Lab assay of single mutants.
Amino acid sequence: MASQGTKRSYEQMETDGERQNATEIRASVGKMIDGIGRFYIQMCTELKLSDYEGRLIQNSLTIERMVLSAFDERRNKYLEEHPSAGKDPKKTGGPIYKRVDRKWMRELVLYDKEEIRRIWRQANNGDDATAGLTHMMIWHSNLNDTTYQRTRALVRTGMDPRMCSLMQGSTLPRRSGAAGAAVKGVGTMVMELIRMIKRGINDRNFWRGENGRKTRSAYERMCNILKGKFQTAAQRAMMDQVRESRNPGNAEIEDLIFLARSALILRGSVAHKSCLPACVYGPAVASGYDFEKEGYSLVGIDPFKLLQNSQVYSLIRPNENPAHKSQLVWMACNSAAFEDLRVLSFIRGTKVSPRGKLSTRGVQIASNENMDAMESSTLELRSRYWAIRTRSGGNTNQQRASAGQISVQPAFSVQRNLPFDKPTIMAAFTGNTEGRTSDMRAEIIRMMEGAKPEEMSFQGRGVFELSDERAANPIVPSFDMSNEGSYFFGDNAEEYDN
């Protein structure tokens, strides 16, 4: 993207840094990872977990959730003011799984939030270390993106479920800051804005008074975040219109849905970061690795190297396929839920299948599930090659597409044709070009129609051997075009429920 120079890199967003050079960025990201790792080690000690239990991804998720809940100030305040039966607002906890007599047992633990905050700050040299908290939120978000298709949420806001490739980060909490905003897809931002506008339509006082002023500035800020994701002048001009509207209503909703559809071809720039579970960072720190000293990046080879040398386990339900569970977590670790499966298959070195073909449910185990038949197995999170994460949407291309997802959002900077089903997408653009945004709409449609099938995206960008740390010898991959490109292809993934 041309304006790259004016933006802070995501590592800076990730670490609240002012302008830093590459070495400083690597050190501050490393410091953040160190903090998460030290916190995780301490929690495993508190909970008396064995090494194996500490490497269980379900335990990692519970521990991450506990610290996120302990620092969720708004919710904590709300819980104190609106006490609900049987919930102690000062405590947080969740299921911890232990191996007892050759069987997995679930144990519900409860801790004072104050105590968890103390352990977290102690692991982070006394700081609140917001960057580390956001990092864990993005890992949870990436896992949700890989596990669930947001059909219901899309339909509720009037969008087409086939636009799911635009929904990265749709389950990120509001408090995820600049680093969170960077990884949100165009569809996620559109959905947040539509929800806001709908509230304004239904509630006369939404934009009024002292609160209304705050609401208005939040609305304009979200519009600017979305505008910054678009790469064409016409899309940005249309966002200006939406932002400046005196009284946002149905016309703005129409414009936003139009823009979301246009992003299936004229893709937005959305950041991709490899955020790993805390149970990967903990053992690495415990083994003596100093992330701050060595430096770390979320968008280069580092996460690949770390996963190459990590042992992570997962509980497996009786009829689940461990290899499929591994694929789910591998995609989440690489922030690749909406990437082209052919690119992923090449990088991973084994075939990556669409969601609907995987015999696996989510990673988390519900409290009512029976533990008797639970097994555990090693997650295979290694890769054959590594590639640089991208934040450009890439230019655009036609490809055989599917009944489910009709476009992709690249996660890796790797040369390819970008699949999208042009006739299906263009069919949504018939007729409606009147109104105050008509010239911009016409211009956007013209650009979409001009998108050429034979153009290559990320020209000359390749993948790298894991021994090639400096990215000196790019390998331009070859793809098996007979395979499906979309992950949520004609899909039956479970729906995400809060």
Rank of each mutant, 00 (worst) to 15 (best):
Q4Y: 15
G5R: 15
R8Q: 14
S9R: 00
S9E: 00
E11M: 11
E11D: 14
E14G: 01
D16K: 01
Q20G: 00
E24I: 12
I25V: 14
V29A: 12
K31W: 04
K31I: 05
M32N: 15
D34P: 00
R38P: 08
C44Q: 02
L56C: 12
S60R: 09
S60C: 13
I63S: 02
E64F: 05
R65V: 07
V67Q: 05
L68Q: 10
E73H: 08
E73F: 12
E80H: 11
H82E: 00
H82L: 03
H82W: 13
K90G: 13
K90R: 15
R99H: 08
D101H: 06
R102T: 05
W104R: 09
M105F: 14
R106Q: 08
Y111E: 11
Y111V: 13
I116M: 08
R117M: 14
A123V: 12
A123G: 15
N124H: 14
A129N: 06
H140V: 08
T147S: 10
Y148P: 08
V155T: 12
G158Y: 12
M159G: 03
C164P: 05
P173T: 11
R174W: 10
A179T: 07
A181Q: 15
G185W: 02
V186M: 13
G187F: 02
E192P: 06
L193H: 03
K198W: 04
G200V: 07
G200H: 04
T215Y: 01
R221P: 03
K229D: 04
A237S: 14
P248L: 09
N250Y: 07
E252N: 13
F258T: 02
L259E: 10
S262Y: 12
V280K: 11
F291N: 02
K293V: 11
G295P: 07
L298S: 11
G300Y: 04
K305L: 06
L306C: 11
L306N: 06
Y313F: 13
Y313C: 09
R317D: 13
N319I: 04
N319S: 12
H324M: 09
Q327M: 08
L328N: 12
L328P: 05
C333L: 04
S335V: 01
A337Y: 06
E339F: 03
L344C: 11
L344I: 12
S345Y: 04
I347S: 06
R348S: 08
R348L: 07
K351M: 05
K357H: 13
K357G: 05
N368G: 14
N370A: 14
S376L: 03
S383K: 01
T390R: 02
T396L: 13
Q399D: 01
S402D: 00
S402W: 00
Q405D: 01
Q405G: 03
V408I: 06
L418C: 15
I425D: 03
M426L: 15
T430L: 05
G431Y: 15
G435H: 01
D439W: 02
M440K: 03
A442R: 00
I444Y: 04
M448N: 05
K452M: 05
E454Q: 14
E454T: 12
E455P: 06
L466W: 15
A472M: 04
P477F: 00
D480R: 15
D480P: 13
F488S: 08
N492G: 04
A493P: 09
Y496H: 06
